[in-house]
Design a protein around this nucleic acid. Sequence first.
DNA 1: ACAATACTTCGATTATGATCGAAGTATGAA
DNA 2: TTCATACTTCGATCATAATCGAAGTATTGT
Lengths: 224, 224
Amino acid sequence: MKEGPDIARLGSLIGDPARANMLTALMSGKALTASELALEASVTVQTASAHLGKLNAGGLLRQRKQGRHRYFALADEDVGHLLEGMMGLAARKGHMRTTTGPRDPAMRKARVCYNHLAGELAVHMFDGLVAKGHLLETGDELELTAGGRALMAGLGIDLEAIGSSRRPLCRACLDWSARRSHLAGSLGVALMERFCQLGWARREAGTRAVVFSARGEKEFLRTF
Amino acid sequence: MKEGPDIARLGSLIGDPARANMLTALMSGKALTASELALEASVTVQTASAHLGKLNAGGLLRQRKQGRHRYFALADEDVGHLLEGMMGLAARKGHMRTTTGPRDPAMRKARVCYNHLAGELAVHMFDGLVAKGHLLETGDELELTAGGRALMAGLGIDLEAIGSSRRPLCRACLDWSARRSHLAGSLGVALMERFCQLGWARREAGTRAVVFSARGEKEFLRTF
DNA sequence: ACAATACTTCGATTATGATCGAAGTATGAA
DNA sequence: TTCATACTTCGATCATAATCGAAGTATTGT
């Protein structure tokens, strides 16, 4: 008799293309309605509803009803983290969905990975922090140095506040488009928010791509 | 047009119960024959062969032919790591396969998680190392202290040799049975091997359970 | 109140993929 | 050489689950 976690169930939940597309869309970290997710998955709303019911029953989603609208989001960061991991392995194994579309350059450059910045700019930041000795890296282990803490303070990041959460401060997250690490963890999240507050970057509706202004990108590259 | 990694493909590869059972069996870190895997999955050899073909095409396996025998193993540590992560999330979400069989206590106590020790004893070791200040823990970040290095040297672990690999020295791995961390990384691997060398523990054929002798367990508990 | 919108549920359809018996190929032992 | 064993491949079967049209429920706007 087999015992232990049922990875087959989890795998099959993610293994349907429509459901995978919805989960991927929710990696934006935003909550989307059933109708929006149906569009993401290119299925009818009724089909999407059935799928969302399964993902919800499996604990992968959380939902909030707002009047006639039902908003769905990934259940928690653990789910996001697993999906990231799957994306990374899929990319490493060459499981890429077909086409390099017009959006692809934008996604490769900068996008949201659930709650932190990913893409070439994010990788640049990670590498820059490491190269300048602001971030100490031993494999997956990351620690912010005194210089790094000063840099963050200068950016307006309150390390005391974000360091108190259960989430690790710094975590390396493998960037599937660049095949190198970018910064996750509570610092990664805080930085994503901060870039938007500073007006360096903004989120576009309906996509995970993050758009940096010319000035914002210049400041970003100057900083990291 | 959707672009990016195809997590649906990966999910569906893992999402079949027979294939999931085989992957789980391969978490032992050993290479198994097609016939053995067929038994693990409770399917015929021909069915197993078809499944193994798919897993192989998906890059999740590596194989080695030895005379009439074809040995299959997980492709690499990345695959093991993802499967661990899925087990952890499945456990957290309550996706548990049914029964607590006679082997369950043994599996809960000590088992192999791809290449390092897991289970209650492994969690005890992790917690002991942290409590005694041998291991510094900040979230997922782990660092061996000088005291910890001395302890390992005393155990006969050559930290220079194992520290040079690409793999992190210390990595926390969530133990699905105990719901707490155990030690992975190259140190985790080396410790697993060392326990067997010392005669404290041994592997049993056909299972991931690790059997500690009475003396071995006493030594283990005294050490950690 | 009525119409529009956002879902959820039901039921029939059908494509898909797991399954195993049969057959074939490769290797090892007697 | 023959027989046994370890697979791989083929083809037919069939269970399953995704799918959407239809219908129903809930909310919002006019």
